[in-house]
């Protein structure tokens, strides 16, 4: 069937009606122009990422210091270890119910139980020594408190190092989910 031909008036009308409509500025796209907002968000994000150094903090719980050392209550009993660690510039001096722990951590006697190694505090040996003392009697198995004291000029980081060394068993398997606790309850001794 032959197609009917449009008249000139019809062609003109088709051209007019089929012309794309110019949208008013407020109708354009039908969406909010969020590009400037996106720019701001992007800049803020970059700034935050560049300036924030993510460091995670933890807290160690402790109690008010007591004059003269000694644990909280438990150390007053005879069948307790009553461990006291004194941090001095040359190393760690350990005192227990039996007396001062001698160098090497094997017996009772004078001297520093854990002297410095290569001019640095030997936290590993301190942890091993604390473990040996704790294991020396079944009565000490449940004892968890230790008194830490230090010379007046000893920096806080050394004291935190001692707390870390005494908190858990150093010989727990590396893949163990939880380390066996030794002395997590810390009491500070005052040095007048």
């Amino acid at each position: 069937m032959a197609e009917e031909k449009l008249s000139a008036a019809q062609r003109s009308k088709i051209r007019r009606l089929s012309a794309p409509k110019e949208l008013a500025p407020d109708e354009e796209g039908g969406e909010l122009n969020i590009v400037p907002f996106l720019d701001i968000v992007m800049n803020v994000l970059m700034f935050v990422l560049a300036t924030v150094s993510v460091t995670f903090t933890a807290t160690i719980d402790t109690f008010p210091p007591r004059a003269g050392g000694g644990g909280r209550g438990a150390s007053q009993q005879q069948n307790t270890l009553g461990l006291t660690v004194l941090v001095v510039p040359d190393g760690f001096s350990l005192k227990a119910r039996g007396g001062n722990v001698a160098p090497g951590c094997e017996s009772v006697g004078e001297g520093l139980a854990v002297p410095k190694k290569n001019n640095e505090y030997d936290f590993k040996t301190l942890a091993k020594c604390a473990k040996r003392l704790k294991g020396s009697s079944p009565d000490f198995e449940d004892e968890t408190s230790v008194t830490i004291s230090a010379n007046k000029e000893i920096p806080y980081k050394a004291v935190v190092g001692v707390m870390d060394a005494l908190r858990s068993d150093p010989e727990t398997a590396p893949d163990a989910k939880e380390k066996k606790e030794m002395f997590p309850d810390v009491q500070f001794g005052l040095v007048k």
């Binding site: 460091t55 995670f56 903090t57 933890a58 807290t59 160690i60 719980d61 402790t62 109690f63 008010p64 210091p65 941090v87 230090a150 010379n151 007046k152 000029e153 000893i154 920096p155 806080y156 004291v159 935190v160 500070f188 005052l190 040095v191």
Partner: peptide, 25 residues
């Protein structure tokens, strides 16, 4: 220094602060 830390903790203890949280990294 340990002495300064003790002074602060002692003063806190004297003002009825009975538990401290020492913040560490």
């Amino acid at each position: 220094p340990y002495r300064l830390l003790c002074e602060v903790l002692y003063t806190l203890g004297q003002n009825e602060f009975a538990k401290f949280h020492l913040m560490v990294n």
